[in-house]
Design a protein around this nucleic acid. Structure first.
Lengths: 332, 332
DNA sequence: CCCGATATTGGATACGTTTTCATGCATCTC
DNA sequence: GAGATGCATGAAAACGTATCCAATATCGGG
């Protein structure tokens, strides 16, 4: 019952060496072959596992990487998290997860917890815009942004999907189908996509067809329904995330708009249910898991030369939710 | 730039008291009102945040709660995680997340990381059956199981949905609709549901209609497709999870079985896309978030009298994927 | 007025590790 | 052979905190 975990001291005594030597052997330092083997044998025998507590205090930083994202319930973020976890696991590092709900205040609070914990490496999908990240970075937190970046912090490496190209592809596809009145249904923190949307569409852009919801499902639904009712003349919608896409489908169904006859829909991010939906949804797939993995990789490499970031490709997956603007929409 | 974090020592000196006093004040120990106020003022002034590193080492345990689940990509587990996070956040505790992929080996590995980290409180959706948890518990890890339990560890508190009642409700509904050949499509770690299925169905049970997949999407799809092809006489399916339900819908569609005309389907767990599917899916909703929250609560309360666990109610949400066994199934 | 009880306080210690530094020893160079 | 060089090693010093313990101050009762 008195199974106290073996400490480095126990190992040292049992092996007849100093604790320093044990530490060196286990951290890959230099030691004579025979000493090394003896220490390793004894350590295995005692089932010794170095305590992260002691090490962390000594090094004044907790190993492990912090992960901050808006909502773990969202499949997309879930996949990003999965990527981070995969990378961290292969490095043997723990991951401390916090959610922000896209609220800068909650975000700051979560960062506080991480700092208190001594975490010095962070992968974050930032919600706060502008100033809110300054204190964090000043505190020496090694940060990598994922999926989106925060305005004014271009010196922080970021792993992003190529939103610009994704939007362009989607819009090219829609305009190629003859659509002219194309709406954008966006969420928080999508400045990148929004400006791309405006740029690509150029003179065709109609500001009234751009709606930005907050993070919640309700808000997304309200935005979609409002948009569809207010502008029944639109013929296509680009939804900037799976939550928005879901809302669009529900709102369309509620308003008795048939996809794709009455309205074409392209959704950002490929989620499993996109295929289950009927019609199945045409999407811009983003490599969510890769985003997480690469971000974790970047933050683990850490000290070295920081590349400015990574831009991962998106892919248009054509399914059944878009049609040519042939049949004029029923006037309801 | 030389912004070293203030330590308890700095606060003590600035306030003209001993470090012990500062520690006491901040942990709610006894102190004279004026000392208390002075210390608090100085602490706030220096923006002092006690280092978890020091505290953890001193107390030989990392605060924070470990969370182990099969797959953060699965919406259901995502919601459980969300519940845990919500509770942990209100307690100011960090959450260390690990995924097991329903693989006992990976699970053991993840537990190893947690132990090394000094984590002593764990919320887990266990994959390992039987023996694999023994070493963990012997190591003094304060554990609460969530969503399912591990065979032979009935003394570990568990927060579960009332699978038995859920299965009964679903089967009552299906048999009430006239179904007799009802299949069960299960996943790993669902012994509870499976035995309930057998028990409730009693003499009607047909072992050939019981199929258990492994955790992956592929495996689930294969199981569903195999089942549907092998036994075209079945008229209803109970899917023991949203992944299985997804697989069932896809396989049915692939085999040109129309829901609910050719086959009725009830899925465990209410996910957002259940409503988007067409037909929308009749489900047994489980309070995923509550499960996580309650489990975290339990593990945080910890030391006190351990209740044997919590059983949360499930709810049948009738949508459009079940029909009376009127029209005989088309023979294909 | 004295004594015991209680409340408040600060010094010291230990938690388990990594890392610096000095020491001893062997080998190498001239 | 003497000095220089290199390597393996262990003692010791942090890292920042919580807690034990003794010491002091305060108070009430006899």
């Amino acid at each position: 019952m008195n199974m106290r975990r073996a400490t480095i001291r126990d190992v040292a005594e049992a092996a007849g060496v100093g604790v320093a030597t044990v530490s060196r052997v286990l951290s890959g330092g230099s030691a004579s072959p025979e000493t090394r083997e003896r220490v390793l044998t004894i350590a295995a025998q005692l089932d010794y596992r170095p305590s992260a507590l002691g090490r962390n205090l000594r090094q004044r930083r907790s190993g492990g990487i912090g992960l901050l994202l808006p909502d773990i319930t969202d499949t997309f973020y879930g996949r990003v998290a999965d990527g981070v976890l995969a990378c961290a696991r292969s490095a043997g590092e723990p991951v401390i997860l916090g959610t922000t709900g896209d609220d800068p205040e909650r975000e700051a609070e979560a960062i506080g917890v991480l700092l208190e914990q001594g975490v010095d490496r962070l992968v974050a999908i930032p919600s706060g815009d502008g100033e809110s990240w300054a204190p964090t970075l000043r505190a020496g937190l090694n940060t990598v942004f994922a999926h989106r970046t925060s305005a004014g912090y271009d010196d922080i490496p970021a792993v992003l999907a190529d939103d610009r190209a994704g939007v362009r592809t989607a819009l090219d596809y829609l305009t190629g189908l003859g659509h002219r009145r194309i709406a954008y249904l966006g969420g928080p923190g999508q400045a990148q996509r929004l400006t791309a949307f405006r740029q690509v569409l150029g003179p065709l852009v109609d500001e009234e067809l751009i709606v930005v919801a907050r993070g919640s499902r309700d808000s997304a639904y309200a935005a979609a329904a409002g948009l569809f009712q207010h502008r029944p003349d639109l013929t296509a919608v680009l939804a900037g995330g799976n939550l928005l896409g879901e809302a669009a489908v529900l709102a369309a169904r509620e308003l008795d708009l048939r996809l794709p006859r009455d309205m074409s829909l392209i959704m950002f991010d490929d989620v499993p249910w996109a295929e289950l939906c009927s019609p199945s949804l045409t999407v811009i797939a983003q490599p969510a898991q890769d985003i997480g993995y690469r971000a974790a990789e970047l933050v683990l490499r850490g000290g070295g030369r920081r590349p400015r970031g990574v831009l991962l490709p998106t892919e248009l997956i054509v399914r059944g939710s878009c049609a040519a603007r042939g049949t004029s929409r029923s006037p309801r």
